[in-house]
Design a protein around this nucleic acid. Structure first.
Lengths: 240, 240, 240, 240
DNA sequence: GATGAATGAGTGTTCATTCAT
DNA sequence: AATGAATGAACACTCATTCAT
C-alpha cells in the first residue's frame, strides 16, 4: 500500500505462545494431516503469522491516523483477521499501540548506533550514520513511526520514556562517541559540540518532521542538507 | 494550570460580529455615537471575553490531549461556558481546532522574524532570534502549540500548509537573510549554510520536541545548546 | 415563496395585547411623532403585523416540515423577527403549533359549510361545495394545513378533537343536510347515503392526500374526479 | 401493547447474512452438509429473531410517534436489544424508517389485490376487498402504518413514491379491473367510475384517517359505511 | 484458538427556551 | 417590547471490548 508496508521485521516479538522455538520458515513437513504431532508447529506458525499481520496493519493505521483515530476494526480488516483475534494478542488498544511503537524502532536503532567502525574518520562515521538513517529510516515506514512517537509521545509518557531509553539515549551516546573521537583527532574544532551531540542529530530530526508535514508541497533535499551539515561540522571538504 | 495559560493574546480574532465602533480596549468615553447606551460595548466586550476564554481553554485542552482526545465538554467547562456556547463561535470541533492553531502562532512568528536589525552583526541577530524564541515560544504555551502542529499536522494537511506559509516559510526566509549577511561579511565560513537555513533552526526544532517528550526526566539546557550551535556556525567566541 | 404564502387571513387572532380595537388597516393618523397618544395605536398595529408575520411563517414551516422538524429559529428568520419575539406571542412551540393549526381552517370551513343555498338543487349545492373547496382549499396553502392535521393529529389529540368539532363535524352536518334534501327531493336514490355523509366527502379527502403525496409524479384530475363522483350520486347528467 | 404488536410477518427481510442453508422454518434435520454443528442455524435464527424484534419495536414506535419523535433508544429498549445492535441492522434512523415502512405493506397489498376471483360478481369482489381490508389492515397495525405513510410521506418523497408504485398503483389497477368488469356486465351504471377507481377506494382511505384521528370520540361504523358505498355503486341490494 | 454479533458508555451536535440588555 | 447570546437537556451515532458459538 504505502512506501514500506512490509519493510519492517514484522515479527516484533517472537510467536511467544506455545512452542517457543519453531519458526515460520521450516515447511510444515507433513502438514496438519490428522492433527499429528507437528500440528502445533503449524499452529504456532500460523499464530505468528497472524500476529505479524496484526502488527503490520496496526502500524500502518496508527501512523496514518494517530492513536485516537485508529479503529480496531480497521486494523482487523487490514490484517485479515476478526476483531476479537486482536484481543488474543493484545490486552488493549493502548497496550497494542505502545507495544508496537516501542519495539518497532529498537532493532533498527541498534544497528544504526552499534557501528563498530574500526579506523575510519569521524566524518566518515557520521556520513555512514546519515546514509544509513536516510536509507533505513527516513525513506521507510520507520520514519512514520518516528513521527508517530513525536506526535503521541506527550500523551504516552511511558512510551516517550521507553523511546528515550532505547532509541534516543543510545543514539545520542553513539554520536557523542564519534564527536569526541573527531575532537580528539582534530577533525572537529568546535569542542563544545561533543557536549551537545543533539546538535549533530538535529537536522535529521528536522528532516523527519519536515518531510512528514511539508514534504508534499515543499520537499527538502535531505541528502544535500546533511552534507552541508557535515561541512559545517568538519569544514568544507577539500578534496573528494 | 500550566505554565502560561494566559500568555497568549487570547483575542485570536476580534469580537467581529456587530461591533458598532468602540473597541474593547479604549474605555467608552463617549460611547458609540448616538446609540446612547453603551450596552453594545459591554455586550461586545463580554462576547470577546467569552470567546477569549474559549480559545484559551481550547488551546489548553488541545495541547494537552491532542485533537481527537479533547472533549468539547471539557473545553466548555474550563472556559466556564455551556457547551452550546462554543458552537456560537465555531461551527465545529475541527474548525475550532484549525482556527485556533492557525492563528495562535502567527503574530509571534511575525515579531520573531521581522527583526529589522540595523547594523548589528549576524551572530548577534541569531542570538537575538534564539533568545526571543526561548523567551516567547519555548518557555510559553506557544511551544506546546508548536508541538501540536507537528503532532497533528499530518492529519490536517491544510493546517500544515497554513503553518508552512505563515510560520515556517517566513521564518526560514528571515534566517536565510541573516545567514547571507553573515557569509557576505565573512562572519560565516560555511557558505553552503545559507542554502539550508533549516540547519540553523534545526536545534530549535529539536529542543521543542525534546522538552515536550523527554524534558521531564532528561531536561536539556537549551540555552547552552543554542550557544554551542552559534559557536559551531561562527566559530568560538574569542573574547566576551 | 410557495403557492399561497399569504392567502390566509394571517391575523388568526386579533392583536389581543393592549388596545384591543385598533386594526392594522387604519393609517397611523399622525404617526409616532414624539410618541404621542396615537403611539399605542401604531405600536399595536406593529405588534399585530409581527404576530401575523410569525403566524404566516410558522404555517409555512410547519406544513413544509411537520411539527418536530420545524425549528423556531427558522420561523423567526422567515418572519423577520428575533427568536425571543416568538415567545412573546406563544408560550411554547407546541402551543404555537396547535393554536395556528386550530384556527387556520375555521373561517374557511365556516364559509364553506354555511352555504345558505336558497332554492338550488342538491346537486348544485354539492357542486358549489366542490368548487369552493377546490378553489379555496385544495389549491391554496389550506390544503397543506389539512394534510398537516392528518399527519400530526395522532400526536396532538386535542388538536384532532378541536379539528373535529370545528371543521369536520360542521362540515359533515352541512353535507348531510344537502344529502337529505337531495333524498327528499328524489334527486338521490341511495337513501343510505344520508346516513354516511362521509361518503360524499371521501373523494375530497382522498384528493388532498393524493396530491400531497403523489401529485408530483402522478397528478390527479381532481375536478374531473369530483364530477364523476357527483354523477355517481345523482346519476349521469342528461343534458348540460 | 397495542392492537397487533405482532400481527405483521415481522421478518421483513430474511436473515440474509451468511446463512449456510438451513432455513429457520424447517428443523435442521441433518443440518448443513458437513459443518457438523448446527450453530450457524441457531445463530442465524437468533439474528433473525433479533431483527424481527427490532422491526416490530420500530414499527410500534414510529407509528405511535412519527419519525422525528421516535428515539432509537426507545426502539432498542422495546426490542430488548442494545442501541448499538440496531446499527448492525440499519445504517441509520432514516434508513430504518424507510426500509420498515416500505416493506411493511407490500405483502398484504399483494394479497389484497391479487384476488384472481373466478366467476364471482363485481360487487362480491369489491365486498371481499372491503372485508379483507377491514380485517387485515384497518383492524391491525397495518392501518397505523398506512397512516404513517400519509403523515410522513411528504417528508420522504422516495418513500411516497415507493408506496405509490407498490401499494397504490397496483391497488388502483386492481380496483379498476373490477370496476370495468362491473361496467361490462351491467352491474355498474356509472361508466365514468372506471376512470376514477380512486372513487371506489376513497371511503377506505377516509376510514383509515378517521379512525386514527377521531375514532376515540367519534367512532365510525366503517363496515356499514362501506356497505352503503357499495349500494351507491351497484344500487341497493334487492334480495340478500 | 478464532470469530463477529452484541453491548453500552461516551461524545459531537442541535435546538427549545430563558433572560440580561 | 424586542433582541439574540447563552444555556443545557436530549439524542444519533461510534467504537473498544466482551463472549457465546
Amino acid at each position: 500500500m504505502k512506501r514500506g508496508s512490509s519493510d519492517l521485521p514484522t515479527s516484533v516479538r517472537p510467536p511467544a505462545k506455545r512452542v517457543g522455538g519453531a519458526r515460520a520458515s521450516s515447511p510444515p513437513t507433513k502438514s496438519s494431516a490428522t492433527a499429528g504431532r507437528d500440528a502445533p508447529s503449524t499452529r504456532a506458525a500460523k499464530a505468528a503469522e497472524r500476529r505479524a499481520a496484526i502488527v503490520d496493519a496496526a502500524l500502518d493505521e496508527f501512523t496514518a491516523r494517530g492513536f485516537a483515530a485508529t479503529r480496531i476494526d480497521d486494523v482487523a480488516k487490514r490484517a485479515g483477521v476478526a476483531k476479537g483475534t486482536i484481543y488474543l494478542h493484545f490486552t488493549d488498544k493502548e497496550a497494542m499501540f505502545q507495544e508496537l511503537v516501542r519495539t518497532a524502532l529498537v532493532p533498527t536503532m541498534q544497528r544504526l548506533t552499534s557501528q563498530p567502525a574500526p579506523g575510519v574518520s569521524a566524518r566518515q562515521m557520521l556520513e555512514t550514520f546519515a546514509e544509513t538513517f536516510l536509507r533505513d529510516v527516513a525513506q521507510t515506514r520507520r520514519g512514520d513511526i518516528l513521527r508517530l512517537v513525536m506526535a503521541e509521545g506527550t500523551r504516552f509518557p511511558s512510551l516517550a520514556e521507553f523511546h528515550y531509553r532505547n532509541v534516543v539515549e543510545p543514539g545520542v551516546a553513539g554520536i557523542r562517541r564519534i564527536l569526541e573521537l573527531g575532537v580528539a583527532r582534530g577533525e572537529i574544532h568546535a569542542a563544545s559540540l561533543a557536549q551537545f551531540p543533539q546538535l549533530a542529530v538535529a537536522p535529521v530530526v528536522l528532516s523527519v518532521i519536515w518531510q512528514g508535514l511539508f514534504g508534499r508541497f515543499a520537499p527538502l533535499d535531505v541528502q544535500a542538507m546533511l552534507r552541508a551539515h557535515l561541512d559545517l561540522i568538519f569544514g568544507e571538504r577539500t578534496a573528494p
